[in-house]
Nucleic acid binder design. Structure first.
Lengths: 404, 404
DNA sequence: TGAATAACTCAATTTGATTGAATAAATCCA
DNA sequence: TGGATTTATTCAATCAAATTGAGTTATTCA
């Protein structure tokens, strides 16, 4: 007899699997293998995945029919034997939108399944209420799709990035926020409705980490932590190849880790939070007297404040180092990646000043690589576009489990 | 044509899946469902797993035939309909060994698949070289199995726990260790050979976390961090239902997180490491003049040192709190579990003094539960026994991927 | 007492991976 | 140059495992 507890128990979510699930999973495995290792022959994919050639052939036919793969023509194989018929991702096979929102503007990008940015659009939204921004997003994205001739059914979804934290699909803020109107606004619901496609909401740091995982340094890493330097400081992590968000979507919140007990007061109520030292807003504060946004957009102003900036870099690097050691001790990642909306020159100098992490933690017998992000996040929207792409391409275990 | 890079690329490890894998996975799903939710009818398992009744019936028959399940007799169902025939784990269906090693003794336990400790044995190994200990382990475990009439083929494996860190199956130490002879000794190789069954090597903290996950508070949690208070301080974590060990097996190394910059010097070279405040060795140090091991075994001595102990508790609680906040910010777990080889009375007092974690991190709008471990780790061996059990029972994604 | 409901099994069906045979295209070597 | 060998691929047949449908049994409800 049915009893309600069966459906509710969260840990009973161990659903079984069946043939259909296996097929869905294998499709992803094939796509992922091609995505990561370039054009490949059926035989090569079979060897790499452990599946039989025939299975690959069947899946490839299916994927070609649905426009995700194309044959690249014959490539002479190294040794004897017939030439290989390479399979490659068909760039026009699928698209995702990346949307970044901050208090002054909306950036929308259209990205194809190979990860290439195809088109970008920026709209000023300063002072607009969320309900007024939603139609702008709809208009902007459909214009992007129209100009790129991306058919509706080829649109996999949209990833929305905001410099906030979330709960159940709407932003929540702690302490002061630059986007008070968005607090508790049901972003996911409204946009899913308005766009008619899956919408994923994520903070800038995690989105950037997913972006790196798909197309940047992360391709070669299974576990890494991404330190995101923006207006504040955030963090995102990829563990075992998948983004880890924690129990309530707040994992990686580096900004309010205390790096200097009793240090600068923070809006959160504590003192000495990393955010008060290593963020762009901290850099801005160090450059007193210079115009707002000098750090981000004004090289001349930067040069003018060289000494102050130098001091900031030193202090920021020192505290980032403390945070990195903490991360190393707690998570033991393969590498720490640093990026964000900070200009590349500044980022490079910052990383250089952090130095190696060889001997920082007595526990680490090896050096923990400190890598500069490869994906340029001039707009965090690029990271957003990676979210639905990851969801649609990655062979996730959840695919194999029935949802019960 | 085959090229070597195919087999080597670590990220190409995205193997496909097939029918056999699916079956293996579903077997685990059934076992896990029964393990977590007690005796269940076939129909109920079907509902919980999303599989058809017939499939459950087939798998149940297979599992009964191999002695892992048994029918518990008819149980009248709540409403109408035929009574259910409950299925339960057969305790004698499988056994694992848990072995804990420290510098003075070896504890071996025999645990059955329901998680019940069936037999325990302690052997003095003070001063013995590893090569002399291995035969002792073999003799002790085979004696345990003999007395419990556990057939060889019912032995799933052994989980070995040592208060160290590991690399490729052998212990490595940083700084001084109480077990210098074990440094770099190929524990896994030698024991696998000697015991003739799978051997898993793990540090005390992760083993404890896995134990809690299988049979303690962890049953209700998907993500938690286990703070292990032993001679030092360690940490283990369960993320998304699975132990996370980091890139080199060092995730969770709380002991050398700095909680008091410039504080007490630590053997690791830094200052202010958590281990110097919140460990049993720190407690011991606080109880100067009392016999060694007073904290662990001597209630009378404990009472005698009440004031000193009180001071220790206050300081340890304060610094553990700092570490907990750090963990909360970085990992956002569902709960933090505290346990270890610390006596239960002390543990309770310590947790009480840590207080709630409601407002500690400005980021946390909810209280982060601070739970006392349920599994009493008088011997960490119990955690060790959980390791092969988890490996043999948990529906892991790796089961579904071909190893390529 | 019969209708409804639930648990379970047997038999047939379906899906998708694997295996085996066949074909084609290239290289190697006598 | 031409046959042997190797490799890539497809077609057809086989196999394994989940699902579906029919039938049986046991219980409750009216």
């Amino acid at each position: 007899m049915f009893d309600v507890t069966e459906a509710q128990n969260p840990r009973s979510g161990t659903g079984g699997t069946n043939l259909g699930h296996a097929r869905a999973f294998n499709r992803r495995v094939v796509l992922e293998t091609i995505r990561l290792h370039g054009p490949l022959s059926r035989a090569s994919i079979a060897r790499r995945t452990g599946l039989s050639i025939q299975t690959i052939s069947n899946i490839a036919e299916e994927l070609s029919a649905s426009g995700l793969l194309r044959e690249e023509g014959l490539r002479p194989v190294g040794g004897r034997g017939a030439p290989a018929l390479d399979l490659a991702l068909e760039p026009n096979g699928g698209f995702t939108f990346g949307i970044s929102l901050d208090h002054r503007r909306l950036v929308a990008v259209l990205v194809d399944i190979t990860g290439r940015e195809r088109r970008q659009e920026t709209v000023d939204i300063e002072g607009l209420a969320p309900d007024a921004v939603v139609p702008l997003i709809v208009r902007t994205t459909s214009e992007l799709a129209r100009r790129e001739r991306a058919a509706k059914k080829r649109l996999w979804g949209a990833g929305v990035v905001m410099p906030m934290l979330f709960e159940n699909g709407h932003p929540v803020a702690f302490g002061p926020t630059s986007m008070p109107a968005w607090q508790d606004y049901p972003v996911v619901d409204r946009l899913t409705q308005a766009l008619g496609m899956p919408v994923l909401l994520e903070n800038d740091a995690t989105a950037a980490a997913v972006g790196e995982q798909l197309y940047g340094v992360g391709r070669r890493l299974k576990d890494f932590f991404y330190i995101y330097i923006g207006v504040g400081v955030g963090g995102g992590m990829i563990l075992a190849g998948h983004p880890y968000r924690g129990h309530a979507g707040r994992a990686g919140e580096l900004g309010h880790v205390v790096v200097e007990p009793g240090g600068r007061p923070c809006a959160c109520g504590n003192r000495g939070c990393l955010e008060r030292y290593a963020s762009l807003s901290a850099a801005q504060a160090a450059l007193q007297g210079l115009p707002e946004d000098a750090v981000q957009v004004d090289p001349a102003a930067l040069a003018a404040g060289a000494a102050a900036l130098d001091d900031w870099l030193d202090l920021a690097a020192k505290h980032l180092r403390t945070a990195a050691v903490m991360i190393a001790n707690l998570l033991d990642p393969e590498a720490i990646v640093i990026g964000g909306i900070i200009p590349e020159v500044l980022l490079g100098r910052l990383i250089a000043r952090m130095g190696g992490l060889e001997n920082s933690a007595a526990l680490l017998p090896r050096a923990l690589p400190l890598l500069q992000a490869e994906i340029d996040l001039a707009s965090p929207a690029l990271g957003g576009a990676a979210l639905p792409l990851f969801d649609g391409l990655a062979p996730a275990l959840s695919l194999l489990s029935k949802s019960v």
